[in-house]
Design a protein around this nucleic acid. Sequence first.
DNA 1: GACCGTCCTGTACGGCCGTACAAAACGAGG
DNA 2: CCTCGTTTTGTACGGCCGTACAGGACGGTC
Lengths: 179, 179
Amino acid sequence: MTTLDQGNATRSRILAAARDLFAERGYAAVSLADIAAAVGLTKTAVAYHFHPKDRLAAEIIAPAADDLLALLGGEFSGHREFLRAFTAFAVRHRAVIRLLTEDIGGADRAPPGSPGEAIREFGRELFVRLAGPDPSHGTRVRAWAALGAVQSGVVKTMDVPADVVEETLTAAAVAVFES
Amino acid sequence: MTTLDQGNATRSRILAAARDLFAERGYAAVSLADIAAAVGLTKTAVAYHFHPKDRLAAEIIAPAADDLLALLGGEFSGHREFLRAFTAFAVRHRAVIRLLTEDIGGADRAPPGSPGEAIREFGRELFVRLAGPDPSHGTRVRAWAALGAVQSGVVKTMDVPADVVEETLTAAAVAVFES
DNA sequence: GACCGTCCTGTACGGCCGTACAAAACGAGG
DNA sequence: CCTCGTTTTGTACGGCCGTACAGGACGGTC
């Protein structure tokens, strides 16, 4: 194992530990020292790999963000297909969903350019995509309820098999939006 | 207006400002200085009224917590009635729901005895109350989805009339749980 | 064996937080 | 008027955060 491989290995270990800690406690509540302790390093070592702390969040989120962009760019014949795709996306990235939907986006008054800024925008775009432009009060409430149902259902049931969660939540989200 | 009344008045102003700020950004992300700025005081003046910062959260949450205890202690003939009552509760206290369900409870590794500890327990009890003991995978997912739907629907639509939100969300929550 | 980049540690700094404490306004009551 | 309690201020402290920087350990390269 070369030194370069070793670096990438600990990099991955840091990433994995950070992903779990963020999913459990939220982004802002996890310090570099916490992550370092989880992988048996010092906080300075963690900072060496991910220079601004934002990089950690960015790198953890990246694959999910790509999928999300694809989701937002896709064409869907109706809200059922959109909700099916969204639920599949949420289940696939369930360890990261909390960061994408809640934590970073809402935690701090995001200075423009920060990762939180983009994430906040994502959440709103998901809503617009589902509720359409200029939705009625009832539609607004139902759209947010559907998104919230998927998010909550995905985050709180990490130990349930993914296919069960996906199937159940797709039905639930559709039921909400059509209620 | 006596000095005592004046004190209670600014106390109320602080409480109101804090409630709004917490609802908007979350508990941990709001500092005493932020609250102080919102009411035109210094952070020290705010700290004078609410000695540990926790008191602010505790006092804001108190009425909602009382209602929640009544909800958990009540008898319901089925999940529909329970969800109806829960939705009514959530709408009634929508400015505080975020704190009760997400922010404080999940933010930090709560030292036993902290407000976050109790709130975390509340959330779990709500779930048990809805899902019953020893629920199946599907029921677990649906229960969390229903609770999440109400929470999200309530928090993201502060500007929608309360009765509209309540009626819509009750139907949505029932639809989720029966899906 | 000397050199070098990678990886990690130790120490230190500045910034923001919540809190403590002394002192200044200020209206109320003797 | 003068005192007293309440309310607000100003200043200061300790703690934790993310970050900067210098140095040490280690393996690969020549």
